[in-house]
């Protein structure tokens, strides 16, 4: 295989509805380009695991300290909505896997359809999440309008948590569960939104015919990202909604 910088390698399009792909000039072969990008993306996903891992470590740490708080807090969440969202994400993960498969087999329309279904799953997930947050807001467990109000150390009451005498009255530091719930689901939700955005971007390229059996790298990578979002939720669901 030649290593001089004077040639560009082009992967031809498999059909008239597709466009060819030019391999970046510093790579010798398409396989090298593919594997380099993929290894890089797996490394990035590893960083995501460790980033979320910190949150999970905090969860377990305080689940150990205040088991009653967590058990009672978990009961304030609607597990049915949680299960619904789990189902939605699992199905969307499946549609994404099918989307990648369609790109691998040069099925342009199917790629677009499965990607669109995945975005739809993301949208449903976020709508359900919105109603969940809304309910927490109404019950005074997370009052979003007062989220960033300053905390008065002297009275010891947190502005966004209004439940000191309500359902969480019997347990220590009732706000802690909801703070962790909010932080974890908000960061996860951000990933859902980013993932949906990436899938829309991939769809733009797919519509132009950029992805086919010869070149489907972006679809593959965005798919991996979406599965990671699903992966994290698989752990969040039992930990938050069905606190063991």
């Amino acid at each position: 295989m030649s290593h001089d910088g004077h040639h560009s390698v082009v992967i031809p399009a498999p059909g008239p509805e597709f466009v060819p792909h030019t391999v970046a000039h510093h790579f010798d072969t398409p396989v090298q380009e593919f594997q380099a990008a993929k290894l890089g993306f797996w490394l990035f996903l590893a960083t995501e695991i460790l980033l979320f891992g910190g949150l999970f470590a905090a969860y377990f740490y305080f689940h150990e300290s205040y088991p009653e708080t967590f058990r009672l807090g978990g009961r304030q969440l609607d597990w049915k909505l949680g299960a619904l969202n789990t189902t939605v994400l699992l199905i969307s993960s499946w549609t994404m896997a099918m989307g990648v498969r369609s790109a691998q087999t040069s099925q342009k329309q199917k790629t677009l359809m499965y990607c669109a279904l995945t975005v739809l799953g993301a949208a449903i997930f976020m709508v359900v999440k919105f109603f969940e947050y809304k309910a927490k807001n109404e019950h005074g467990l997370i009052v979003f309008s007062e989220l960033f109000h300053p905390y008065d150390g002297a009275t010891g009451s947190i502005p966004w948590f209004k439940d000191y005498h309500g359902v969480m009255a019997g347990v220590p530091h009732g706000h802690l569960f909801f703070a962790i719930y909010l932080t974890m689901t908000a960061i996860h939700g951000l990933h859902v939104v980013i993932g949906a955005g990436l899938i829309l971007w991939v769809m733009k390229g797919a519509a132009k015919g950029r992805f086919h059996a010869g070149y489907f790298l972006p679809v593959d990578l965005v798919g991996l990202y979406w599965h990671l979002v699903d992966l994290i939720w698989i752990f969040l669901f039992p930990l938050l909604y069905l606190v063991p």
Partner: peptide
């Protein structure tokens, strides 16, 4: 690659503590 993400989430959590008082690092909040 393997260590820095944990720093990322740590400083983020400190920022969140200051913004909306999660309480995980704050002994006053458990």
């Amino acid at each position: 690659v393997l260590a820095t993400p944990v720093l990322g989430i740590t400083v983020l959590l400190v920022a969140f503590e200051r913004l909306y008082h999660i309480g995980i690092f704050d002994p006053r909040l458990g």
